[in-house]
């Protein structure tokens, strides 16, 4: 199990406090800069590992940045603190984005990112909760995060102190039946402390979702399953922040975030081959340049 980086935790606290002081439009700009810093980490990690899922990493980087710098009540110093908010990245193949985000909050040292997918590293290609603080459940096979999130949301309610539970899934992942089992439960149980965030980038490993096994109209399906649905631009920081506001209907919340796979680097954006392609040395330079701001 990796250990916290106290120095980095202090920086994270300072950053959160500074972000909180800013007016919404300034905060959106600051979050944008922070997200691009995470994307630069991801580029370096995947380049060094020679493996990774850069497209999906980039489509969830913005939401991870908002969650860990504004929304979630988590504690890198005491990651299992009772009563904490629970965050689950169900699309576990986007581990690099999660690791870079957790390291920036000090859950472990950013120096560890260089070990991503290297032999015996705790930073496996898919996140393991027994190795990485801040990871609540090991994910990788798709369709696992949402049922666990339902259990955590229900469990904290049974304990008498409902914690906020946020789960991020891919959109292709919503083809897994287990998610719809879990949605029925979330709705039946009235889990208004649960938020499902769907990274609607419209691409899955092999092709577009709508060419593979169409999901649309996803918002209507979620509403029919009893969720309060919010459709947003998943790269607009002001919309992202607002989307995590509390449930207004007593129902669990589903955020359908329209995103761009590969967001932030022009030659990677919205191209199916960049699901898990690795950038060349030259492409790394070009990507870092585009992400410089």
């Amino acid at each position: 199990m990796l250990l916290e980086s106290t120095e980095q935790v202090s920086r994270w606290h300072e950053r959160r406090a500074a972000f909180a002081e800013l007016d919404p439009s300034m905060r959106a700009e600051a979050l944008q800069r922070q997200a691009n810093s995470i994307r630069r980490d991801i580029v370096r990690m995947i380049s060094a590992a020679g493996q990774g899922h850069i497209g999906g990493d980039f489509s969830v980087t913005d939401v991870l940045t908002v969650l860990f710098n504004v929304v979630l009540d988590v504690d890198p110093h005491e990651p299992r603190r009772d009563g904490r908010d629970i965050f689950i990245l169900s699309k576990g193949h986007c581990a690099a984005a999660l690791y870079a985000t957790l390291a920036s909050a000090g859950f472990f040292s950013p120096n560890e990112l260089a070990t991503f997918m290297k032999p015996l590293s705790d930073l496996n290609g898919h996140p393991a909760n027994t190795k990485v603080p801040g990871v609540e459940t090991s994910t990788g096979p798709l369709g696992h995060g949402l049922p666990v999130a339902v259990g955590a949301a229900l469990g904290s309610r049974i304990k008498g102190a409902p914690a906020r539970v946020v789960v991020v899934t891919g959109d292709g992942e919503m083809q897994e039946g287990s998610n719809w089992e879990a949605l029925m439960s979330a709705s039946h149980l009235g889990l208004d402390n649960l938020t499902l965030f769907i990274d609607r980038n419209r691409l899955q490993q092999g092709a577009r979702t709508e060419e593979t096994n169409a999901l649309d109209p996803l918002d209507e399906k979620l509403a029919a399953f009893g969720l309060e649905v919010r459709v947003i631009d998943g790269h607009d920081f002001r919309q992202l922040e607002a989307a995590f506001g509390p449930s207004t209907t007593g129902k669990p919340v589903a955020i359908v975030a329209n995103t761009i796979k590969g967001k932030g680097v022009s030659f990677i954006e919205d191209r199916v081959e960049w699901h898990h392609k690795v950038p060349s040395t030259e492409q790394v330079e070009m990507a870092l340049e585009e992400l410089a701001q």
Partner: peptide, 28 residues
């Protein structure tokens, strides 16, 4: 009554829910 969770005929969800309950310190 509040500690019996019947998820219906949905075993994948049932075990996932169990893991989530355990994640927040309960014994499912």
């Amino acid at each position: 009554p509040d500690r019996l969770v019947n998820v219906g005929i949905a075993e994948q969800n049932m075990v996932g829910v169990g893991a989530g309950l355990a994640a927040v310190g309960l014994i499912p």
